[in-house]
Amino acid sequence: MANLWQKLTHHKGNGWWNLPHTASNELNPPHEGPVGGAWLGNWWRFWTHGGVSHAGPKFYWLVGFILAVITALEVWAFALEGLGAWYIPILLILAVAKFIGVVAYFMHLRFDKPMFTWFFASSMVVGVLIFVALMFLMENAHTPVLF
């Protein structure tokens, strides 16, 4: 139980998922060029953190661009009109991706202490659970369920 509590409240490592690497508590890495070392990681770090240990404008522009692209994809999915049963799941996945993009990077949850994430995520979990349950209840409200 104590271990679970620590996981709930303490910041260990870099956060909850490991993309991209938050280098804030590390020294600036030596730039090794595309050949030597973990070039992909360095390339990513350069773009995401402007070569320093904190996310920079370039990174934010990149996130903003990706969010705009996802929005375009959503509208494209709308314009296609042939997705049938896949339409709503696809839209929901894209919306969640945008949601996470803004929350994680623009709102800095990705770079911040995890307790903020827990605050927000726990209310999201409670909210999503009860409101989805509410929709199921109301969906079946006027149709007799044989069980």
Binding site: T71, E74, V75, A77, F78, Y87, I88, L91, L92, L94, A95, K98, F99, V102
Partner: peptide
């Protein structure tokens, strides 16, 4: 608004 755009407008 991301959620509203998806559920009210697109869906």
């Amino acid at each position: 608004w991301i959620v509203i755009f998806t559920v009210i407008y697109l869906i």
